[in-house]
Design a binder for these strands. Structure first.
Lengths: 243, 243
DNA sequence: TCCGTGCACTATCGTATGTTAGTAAAACGG
DNA sequence: CCGTTTTACTAACATACGATAGTGCACGGA
């Protein structure tokens, strides 16, 4: 019997490949408890060695590092249907913190269960591997945007990315997606100051590209937003094909 | 019989786990032709769908993207023993170019052979997966360095990373590692201008931290270089443990 | 040997973004 | 409902880094 909590995750996989009944059941069998986190709460810590990975089913989380100056850098945002730390299954220590941005619900996947999947379900294993490859592809786009795009293009690119990712798991309504974080947190993701994020955001609003009421981002002009952000969705690999 | 061309790759894996005879032979059986590239030559193109992945056995390569202004951003450097595009095994299209930085030799791994490995060798599959996870971990550190470190710290961090990675595959001699790229290419990796890379490099030299004669980077003060770069090798996960 | 090319390196100046320090409004907690 | 805290937003000023436009050296080809 399928685990309903995994529905968005299945959906994200089904956008890119097919998923058999046996595979869905195998994942459901490994899925453990649901755990809850308050906004701002740490879900996993730098240097720790988790024995479980967490699949987000509600809310938003981020991976982040702290540098000596005390500044933070967010390296990834995660939404419902994403594993926040599937890589900890094979990496011996976490190289970042994981923090809840909003109220979060997540399903635990014990690593020994994941290991059994890799022993018995090669295709499903490839799909889990694919999940982490998509994280890597997003990291690369963030690097390109951070290194070579202006602040406004970078922010537009991030909004485009989240629009597509949210759409893939059914979170887009009326051209808007949930984005419940502070401007400071957005600054920590873009590598900017909170002041400059505010300035840049106002420019995006002035150009009638997006609006953001702290709960949801609404895309007003999808075509121009992609142009401003030099956004090419190829890296999200939204292609139904056998893997 | 083991394929000698894979020696550095085996070495990189053995730093993090054990590798059985059957696994080495399975990889050797899948390994195909050696292909050669001249400095600057494209090894794989943005948007293409390779049917093989390339394992570097000689020289240095980079993954890079080009933005509308014509500027380039390098998102990864690869050295002997690294797969440059193992992710193309599961991602349907390449989200970046791969370019040879120096004279390069690489071994082709046809994707159908890799697929057979995932069907028959779960542990070896996890090690290949691990390879791509390490790429991701390096991407994250680049993001942190780019977003929140100064130019000098960022450059120091990159040199530290390459020192450790080179050491893992036996490329360090006399505290120096091969680094045959131009200052412009280094700028494209750091997200800086070539002018500022030159300034920053001179500061690192002035502080007696490194020297670089365009062929090799020599680490003069390893301890202080790590301090300046806020380098913590945890993300490279150099830990011998069953995966 | 000479020329052409690419690269390291420099000087000058410009600007995108950061820092500090605030105000006001909204959200939150008791 | 009120006091407290958090967050958005603004202004003034500072700076790390970028852009442009060079010079000169080293190397490779003919």
């Amino acid at each position: 019997m399928d685990d309903q909590r995994l529905e968005r995750f299945f959906r994200r996989l089904r956008v890119r490949d097919t998923l058999g009944q046996a595979e869905r059941e195998a994942l459901s069998a490994v899925a453990g408890q649901t755990v809850y986190f308050a906004p701002g709460e740490m879900m996993a810590r730098y240097g720790s060695s988790p024995s479980k990975s967490l699949l987000l089913v509600q809310g938003m989380a981020a991976r982040q590092n702290t540098v000596e100056s005390g500044q933070q850098q967010i390296t990834a945002f995660h939404i419902a249907g994403d594993f926040v730390d599937l890589h900890s299954f094979l990496l011996s220590k976490l190289d970042h913190d994981v923090r809840a941005m909003s109220a979060v619900a997540a399903v635990e996947f014990p690593h020994d269960g994941l290991r059994r999947i890799t022993e018995e379900f090669p295709h499903l294993t490839r799909l889990l591997w694919l999940s982490t490859l998509l994280d890597g592809a997003i990291h690369r786009q963030w690097l390109v945007a951070m290194g070579r795009l202006t602040a406004i293009a970078h922010m537009a690119h991030l909004f485009c990315e989240h629009f597509v990712r949210s759409d893939n798991v059914g979170l887009v309504e009326d051209m808007s997606f949930p984005f419940e974080i502070t401007q400071q947190e957005l600054a920590d993701a873009l590598g900017l100051s909170n002041v400059h994020v505010n300035r840049t955001l106002q420019e995006l609003r002035r150009q009638d590209l997006v609006s953001w009421d702290t709960k949801r981002v609404r895309v007003i002009d999808w075509k121009r937003l992609q142009e401003v952000g030099q956004f090419d969705p190829i890296f999200l690999d939204v292609v139904q094909t056998p893997r």
